[in-house]
């Protein structure tokens, strides 16, 4: 579904990603881990078309590098951005509607909004509230639902559990595991290493813009490096 070769992202003099390879098969979940500033967000931004990047990006066998974000969205890429970036002044329902904006028949959009409200009942209760007034957990539900509205083939999640209470963190990981069980292909960026490795098929640990470690999630979890640095074992 996703193949990334020798990806490089730079902001002026800062080299955020320096030659990264990733491959993600259909229906699998790849966890992209690493310390602050390792280049995780930059990698997702490059795949979603938000920042220019060097290297090759292929999605479902087609070249995706260099395409604008709107084209990639229409090809089935959805990003839940770091910090959620909801439209704070718009209501919950309006945020969802925009998430499904690529579906031109309005009836289909409404059907999907209803489906999301069933899946995340809290969003139905808050339908007419401004997104900016939701709690952190509710905002994360909305950000996920907004991305799912497009019916993506490839879901990119940037630290969905960041800043949430422990209960909410579990809820988020449950949801992500559920989406994977439904067959969605997911690239998950996280700082919560144990919970990510528990639901991932593959994992890559980024350090300074390069893969320091990669392989099946179980192997990465068992590696000395990860055990010492992240699993406190």
């Amino acid at each position: 579904m996703l193949a990334v070769r020798d990806l490089k992202v730079r902001y002026g003099a800062v080299e955020a990603v320096r030659g990264l390879d990733l491959s993600l098969a259909r229906g699998q979940l790849l966890a992209l881990l690493g310390a602050n500033g390792a280049g995780k967000t930059s990698t997702l931004a490059a795949i979603a078309g938000l920042v220019p990047a060097a290297g090759r990006i292929e999605i479902a066998g087609e070249t995706a590098g260099g395409l604008p974000p709107e084209t990639l969205a229409r090809r089935g890429v959805a990003l839940v951005p770091e910090g959620r970036r909801l439209f704070a002044g718009l209501t919950v329902a309006e945020n969802l509607t925009l998430g499904g904006a690529v579906h031109t028949p309005p009836a289909e959009r409404r059907r999907r909004v209803a489906a999301m409200e069933e899946r995340f009942p809290v969003l139905a209760e808050r339908r007419h509230q401004k997104a900016g007034l939701l709690s952190g957990g509710e905002q994360q539900m909305l950000a996920l639902a907004r991305a799912l509205m497009a019916g993506p083939r490839l879901l990119l999640l940037d630290e969905p559990s960041l800043g949430l209470a422990p209960q909410m963190v579990e809820r988020v990981f449950d949801i992500v595991a559920g989406l994977k069980a439904e067959g969605l292909t997911i690239l998950l960026v996280e700082q919560n290493v144990p919970m990510s490795l528990a639901i991932a098929d593959q994992a890559v640990v980024l350090a300074n813009g390069r893969a320091a470690l990669s392989g099946p999630a179980a192997e990465v979890a068992a590696s000395d490096h990860v055990r010492r640095a992240y699993l406190a074992a």
């Binding site: 979603a48 604008p68 974000p69 709107e70 959805a78 718009l90 509607t97 925009l98 904006a101």
Partner: peptide, 24 residues
């Protein structure tokens, strides 16, 4: 209307509007 919502949303965060598949 969706395009009306998109215009309000674009005033808040244009890149995210593009992530929703709407052409800049």
């Amino acid at each position: 209307t969706v395009m009306g919502l998109a215009m309000r949303a674009a005033a808040e965060d244009f890149p995210v509007v593009r992530l929703m598949g709407l052409r800049a």
